[in-house]
Write a protein that binds this DNA or RNA. Structure first.
Length: 580
RNA sequence: GGUCUCGUAGCUCAGCUGGAUAGAGCAUCUGACUUCUAAUCAGAGGGUCGCAGGUUCGAAUCCUGCCGAGAUCACCA
């Protein structure tokens, strides 16, 4: 149950009645107001700004309108007190029976508590990571990977059928470089002395692939020409890199549903198909792009290219689909890829991009707009790049210098739980500093443990209750027992639990997974506070043998807290712990 | 120069899509464990929300212009 929605609909009913009584004008019913927990406790448990907004519509003093609403609402059985404050806020004290219902509905719904069916079974695709298959993942990939994964979890939780997809760039020139590098490693495995050129990948991880090629092909590739060895070497190289990446993903708890090959778009005609579609809508032409403004480029030359009219959809310039040499640009298969996503019929299309692809956002959104005749829109979540530090000093990764922090190194040092939580403790478009040493050092007081500890404590309390013979008593808790809860800390905890559906709603609608992490921290804090009361005063402990009624009431809160913590943690992708 | 992000406590960050006296963590200081886990709790100090205008009953939040940080800018992916 969502208390906020419930009170909101009560207020709406009230407005409706006042409209029909001619005490308010009829437009009043369409007012979009909020019901929230006010910052100050003195302002009650819930608060609404309806009267302020109605004041505008009615062209009357908000406080006057608040009076009218108050007269109506004070008879409502869910609301035990109404007060008017400030410029015209209505502040409520809610009847305990409603809070009781919250806890009951939480306990009944179990792991589904808070899972409103916003998606209604519609399909959604979240594309994330999509790193080039030229080597293992590094820390830079971690943030987008985790944010994408949790966005997918969230959408799933609110009723979407979610596909997690990785776009494999196995078609571009970086694959040529990879293949050449691997071939050299293969020759090396046969005892030849090789030199990896400037544009090739020097990493040791390719030696393994060279060895594998040797095992598979023996010497049969050694004397072949480039055209002959390229395809077999390339496909194995990509496959091996993808395996590395899949292992890395598993290490941080990510399992993709689908790896979508860029190369397949070249061979199966999707590129032509999608461009044909654009052409039929007159969105493609041969033309010449203007030179970049304000920035002198020595090697810029004027040339005629196949262009997409992305400016019609808000982009700054039209975008090239073909290179001067007639090959497709990177953009062309990406257009085709999103054409494919559209034909697969997804209602929600989300991409997670790194900030280095920010300049790519407009053209992709333009493409999706064009390909769907404006009926679909591509949602792009940008992740700011992770700034790396080592001992407080900026740290530059370089493949050549070997100062390359791999994702698997981070995970094996700090663990997946910490890695995931750190990435979620800030908004996706805020910059993130990641100090490798600090992460190790401070892993002890990482917020993830704070949350997990609350879960472990709750588990332990329930175990204790069982030993005292009141294990499942909270399941049949009565309103009378529930009313025994009177501590401010207990009330805070109840309200926190009541807030969960709202947090899920906001986080999923806005695709903002960090909200879940912050909420979990706050929920844990409320729980720790209640528990500590019992530390100071034994009468305030959860389990008191001589007082079964209050114990049962408190245990219902413990159970509810434990439930919400474990739901939230599973969305975030962190294991709830029963012991620490 | 264009575009996109960001600018909130000493540091790292939230701020419920426009609400009431702007909040956490770290760090500093003071206190609380013989019991359900102290990996915890309670309290104190710390702010011209980058700057200047505008919109209105009301702005950290929306608009405009500056300042500053980062990313990116045909023909790479």
């Amino acid at each position: 149950m969502n208390v906020f929605e419930k009170i909101k609909s009560e207020i709406l009913n009230c407005i409706l009645k006042l409209c029909s009584d001619k005490k308010l004008v009829s437009e009043a019913f369409y007012v979009d107001f909020s019901v929230e927990v006010p910052r100050e406790k003195a302002f009650g448990e819930l608060s609404t700004n309806v009267a302020l907004l109605l004041g505008k519509i009615e062209k009357r003093n908000p406080r006057k309108i608040a009076e009218i609403l108050k007269d109506e609402l004070k008879h409502n059985e869910m609301i035990s007190r109404v007060e008017i404050a400030g410029p015209g806020f209505l502040n409520f004290i809610i009847d305990s029976s409603l809070w009781f219902e919250v806890i009951i509905s939480c306990l009944r719904n179990g792991l589904q508590y808070g899972s409103i069916d916003a998606g209604k079974g519609e399909s959604a695709i979240v594309e994330y990571v999509s790193a080039n298959p030229t080597g293992p993942l590094h820390v830079g990939h971690m943030r987008g990977a985790i944010i994408g994964d949790v966005v997918a979890n969230l959408l799933q939780f609110v009723g979407y059928r979610v596909t997690r997809e990785y776009y494999v760039n196995d078609g571009g020139s970086q694959i040529v470089a990879l293949t050449k590098s691997v071939y050299l490693r293969y020759l090396e495995a046969h005892g030849q002395k090789v030199h990896l050129g400037k544009d090739l990948y020097p990493g040791d991880y390719l030696k393994v692939v060279g060895d594998k090629l040797k095992q598979k092909f023996g010497t049969s590739l050694v004397d072949l020409s480039f055209g002959e060895w390229f395809d077999p070497v390339s496909s194995i190289a990509v496959e091996e890199m993808l395996n590395l990446i899949k292992d890395d993903l598993v290490a941080i708890g990510i399992r993709m549903d689908n790896f979508f090959s860029e190369k397949s778009l070249y061979s199966d005609g999707t590129i032509e198909k999608s461009l044909k579609f654009l052409k039929s809508n007159d969105l493609i032409y041969e033309g010449i792009l203007p030179p970049p403004k304000g920035r002198t480029q020595s090697n810029w030359e004027q040339r005629e290219q196949l262009l997409f009219k992305s400016t019609q959809f808000g982009d700054d310039v039209d975008r090239a689909l073909k290179k001067a040499n007639g090959e497709w640009t990177y953009f062309a298969p990406d257009v085709a890829y999103h054409f494919d996503k559209l034909t697969r019929g997804y209602h929600v299309i989300v991409n997670i991009f790194g900030a280095d692809h920010a300049g790519y956002v407009k053209r992709m959104q333009a493409a999706v707009s064009a390909l769907s005749n404006g009926s679909s829109n591509l949602e792009i979540k940008l992740c700011q790049l992770v700034k790396l530090y080592k001992n407080g000093k900026p740290f530059k990764m370089s493949k050549r210098a070997g100062t390359f922090v791999l994702l698997r190194d981070v995970v094996s040092e700090v663990g997946a739980d910490i890695a995931r939580f750190v990435m979620l403790m800030r908004k996706n478009d805020a910059p993130l500093d990641f100090d490798f040493d600090k992460a190790l050092e401070e892993s002890k007081d990482n917020p993830v443990f704070y949350v997990q500890y609350a879960h472990a404590r709750a588990t332990s309390v329930l175990l204790k209750a069982e030993q005292e013979g009141m294990g499942e008593g909270y399941r049949n808790i009565s309103l009378k027992q529930f009313k025994l809860l009177s501590l401010a800390e207990e009330r805070d905890l109840i309200m926190m639990i009541a807030m969960w559906p709202k947090v899920v709603d906001l986080a999923s609608k806005n695709r903002e997974p960090h909200r879940i992490a912050f909420y979990l921290y706050d929920l844990a804090a409320c729980f720790h506070a209640v528990q500590h009361k019992g530390k100071v005063n034994p009468q305030l402990r959860f389990v008191i043998k001589e007082k079964p009624d209050i114990s049962v009431a408190r245990l219902s809160l413990v159970k509810a807290t434990k439930l919400v913590l474990s739901i939230g943690l599973s969305i975030v992708g962190v294991m709830p712990k029963d012991q620490m």
